[in-house]
Design a protein around this nucleic acid. Structure first.
Lengths: 221, 221
DNA sequence: ACCTGAACACCGTTCAAGT
DNA sequence: ACCTGAACACCGTTCAAGT
């Protein structure tokens, strides 16, 4: 539903000579595509330029710098996520729905989420969904500081689960992986507990449970 | 209380000629010091080599690669954090104390925490304090899956607050800062709520409140 | 206004060569 | 065993120059 730019003048869209008919919008979309395809680390100015068939300085002309490009990419992704519809009949159900959208879309587009995470632009990525959350909270009767606190508490719950979900065990040496740490730990811990700590956690389930608890605490039934 | 290496042979400690008397331990300690002093981004192999007065390849000889160096740095910081003592009389108080250690030390050493965050080694940084948490949970009567779930829920709560606390507003363009996003947002939100969302959140307070709620949920009184 | 080739100062990493 | 100088292939960024 995002407003799409009208097609450029046919004469300039014929990419003869130096004009490529490239738009800032095109550059940002290609960057997001690159991240989703090949991961956050693959987003280099040169790789993006190659994808678009232009020289590297062209990217700079359109977006200014890599930091601005990243911000624009995260912003675009945020726009796309904002299309998701909040469902549910009760206030609690609808708040839960909005919060779960943040969780599931972050997992689904984990490369982009990681990019936001690494660059500290998470608030930008979450902002639209956060707004949806606040609207539902207000519909449930919360306003002012209480609504803001509730929104933050919910965001913290989702964000905390994402920190655990998005860390890449393949990213660092094997002896530093969580399961190896617990297996090798000399802490006086019960074997059953140790086994549970080594196992792959059900983050989706824990996250949902905590989310429900936080929402029940803030939103009246 | 970490075992310190005995002083090297006096003859080799005289840094004449090629021997520098440098240890892997020294390299990692200098790297951690560099991060704490100048931030996560300042940790480059060349800067570290300059700090230590050696050539860059020397760093590689001692630590292998930058990824391994980062893992070792985070591990060293984890060891230092582990010295903090858990206090409190009741089980809930002690679990709360252990969890707050994770929060406060992460804030206090935010540069190192950011480094762990960016490189996906958070689990490594938190592991020792996590172990302390599990020990207190077991002392409170939880074992196996329940203890592991409780530990994860507590970690998620702390981690979520850290995501919000550690993002650097100066890092990206002004128009993408959280307060600007809320001020410019066209979402139908009550002015009082909007103002509360623009204001600097009391993360320390929210974090403590949520932590207490999670602990009360898992740990019997 | 839009785009390029060529260069700058960085980065992680390697490797033959020294002692 | 430990350390170096020099190089490699990358990176973000800039800039004079083109149309």
């Amino acid at each position: 539903m995002a407003k799409t730019a009208p097609p450029p003048d046919p004469d300039t869209s014929v990419r003869s000579g130096r004009r490529t008919g490239l738009d800032r919008e095109d550059v940002v979309a290609a960057a997001l595509d690159l991240v989703e395809r090949e991961g956050a680390a693959a987003l280099t100015m040169r790789a993006l330029a190659t994808d678009l068939g232009v020289g590297t300085p062209t990217i700079y002309w359109h977006v200014g710098s890599r930091d601005e490009l990243v911000a624009a990419v995260i912003g675009l992704q945020a726009d796309r996520l904002a299309e998701q519809e909040v469902v549910g009949r009760t206030a609690r159900e609808r708040v839960f729905s909005a919060a779960r959208h943040i969780w599931s879309s972050s997992i689904e587009h984990r490369a982009t989420t990681s990019l936001a995470h690494q660059t500290g632009t998470t608030s930008l990525l979450a902002h639209r969904l956060e707004a949806a959350l606040v609207i539902e909270l207000e519909a449930a009767g919360l306003t002012g500081q209480v609504a803001a606190d509730a929104a933050r508490a919910i965001l913290m719950t989702v964000g905390g689960a994402l920190v655990l979900a998005l860390r890449d065990p393949a990213g660092y040496p094997a002896e530093y992986r969580p399961d190896a740490l617990w297996a090798d730990s000399d802490a006086p811990i019960d074997p059953a507990t140790r086994a549970a700590l080594c196992a792959h956690p059900d983050l989706d389930g824990i996250s949902a449970t905590m989310l429900q608890a936080v929402i029940d605490h803030y939103v009246p039934a």
